[in-house]
Design a protein around this nucleic acid. Structure first.
Lengths: 152, 152
DNA sequence: CTACAACCTCAAGCGTGGTTGAGGTAAAGA
DNA sequence: TCTTTACCTCAACCACGCTTGAGGTTGTAG
């Protein structure tokens, strides 16, 4: 059993589609070298990188950011403990921020149950801006709600 | 000051772009009626609905799902306490699930710091499937990693 | 040595969540 | 009344994260 993996093998082991692997390669997330016949061959460390990629995408982190994080991890061989630590820490923080925000919203939503107030001054639902407004994907306008004097 | 809001007023008060309001209307998330001159006018309850929409999108909930949740809330007048409770509860659960998952991943990532193991059997990073695999947007293949005997 | 599976590239397409712009109409203030 | 601002529709476009398909090549099992 060769040390090298074909794209099909990587797909199977990672649970990703071959097309996704090609895509990730174009985006610089993973790397391969080629056989004489121009077919991809992967070092086994690609599976680690893909695990990281998947974790990121699961968390809704844009691929570009995942790529950036991964750029700190050397290719072709096992990342050093230090490399790994840096990356984990970065992601941990990211995750943590999201969790804090979501928890706050959840709790506020909880407090809202049955109230239906949505008053501008007190209702958290009406004042989401403070919380998230920086997450989200796609071309989304950075919103800044005008000073709002609306009373329910 | 009229009871009716123009699209510009709604945009300003909600912090959303006019184009987004048109878009949401096409998607059935909000409704308007028209003046004799074919301009949109909104009941004030649209602001509540938009607050809900924004909350949902912040949380990464697809618009279609937000729309579904909103369909339980009557249009044109203040939702009843019961309507509101049902919706809040639904979202609370959704949020809660996401928080639990993310927390688990965070903690596991925490445990990974410095380890770099990524062993198939024990490393949580290599076994993400169990956790999330149902979130995410866009046409994404429902993955099911093959039985994987890979040893690092 | 042949057949079939697996691989290659490149272009186009899809779903989500919108924005941008052209070309034209409505409404509100001086 | 006039002018300016806000609004209208419709079509096209953007970014992201891939998939699909066409048309052709490689590699391996029998």
């Amino acid at each position: 059993m060769s040390r090298e993996l074909t794209v099909g093998q990587v797909a199977e082991r990672s649970g990703l589609a071959v097309s996704a692997l090609h895509f990730y390669e174009r985006k610089g997330l993973i790397r391969s070298h080629r056989t004489a016949g121009n077919q991809r061959r992967y070092d086994r460390d690609v599976l680690r990188r893909l695990a990281i990629v998947r974790m990121g995408t699961e968390l809704g982190i844009p691929l570009a950011e995942v790529a950036e994080a991964l750029s700190q991890v050397p290719v072709g061989h096992t990342p050093s403990a230090e490399d790994w630590r840096r990356m984990s820490e970065l992601w941990h923080d990211k995750l943590n921020r999201r969790i804090v925000l979501m928890t706050r919203m959840r709790d506020e939503l909880n407090g809202c149950i049955g109230c239906g107030c949505l008053s501008t001054t007190s209702c958290p639902l009406m004042n989401i801006d403070d919380h998230l407004r920086s997450e989200g994907s796609g071309p989304r306008r950075l919103m800044r709600a005008g000073e709002d004097t609306y009373q329910s």
